[in-house]
Design a protein around this nucleic acid. Sequence first.
DNA 1: CGCATTTGACCAGCGC
DNA 2: GCGCTGGTCAAATGCG
Length: 183
Amino acid sequence: MENYLNFFACSSSAPPPASMGFTSNMESSNVFGNVHGHSIPNGFLGLKSTEIHVPTGQEVENSSRSSGGFGRSENEEKSCKKKYEKKIRKPRYAFQTRSQVDILDDGYRWRKYGQKAVKNNKFPRSYYRCTHQGCNVKKQVQRLSKDESIVVTTYEGVHTHPIEKPTDNFEHILNQMQIYAPL
DNA sequence: CGCATTTGACCAGCGC
DNA sequence: GCGCTGGTCAAATGCG
């Protein structure tokens, strides 16, 4: 398993992911940690950090290895660099949402760069990268096969630029998913 | 025409 | 050592 650092306690020098656009609201709604209810009717399921443990028992499993695929023999420089980054591994933040849509509009522009079938899951996992120049943030989006209404989004890295859609991000997200209010 | 998505191939780490 | 799996690349394709 890999490091899901605590949401607001990013080790390494990474600043808190305020860059996600809606974190401020998250903070006050204290959604994470209360995800053990199994029969949550709908809504925001939780924010995972250090260790992802999906209540449904499903493997979210982001961890695993690091990134392979960089060893294109042509770009040695690149691969070296990447290898280095690989060791340092950026903090990741994962959260689950109940949503009809896979892609939550968090205000940033993402470009899909890959899709993979993952084990124990009939839904593929999609890989996105922030299109902003110089911003190396990635995210993975995966729907749980055990509960098709749950989408797990994993962010990796921190945005180095402001949100592209300045206003109402969080509200927009709320429109796309229903917030789970802890009992 | 430019940008985003799709998709197969490639690579590396891990478990057996 | 080999096979499996996850993560990424890059060419091809699609769309506005």
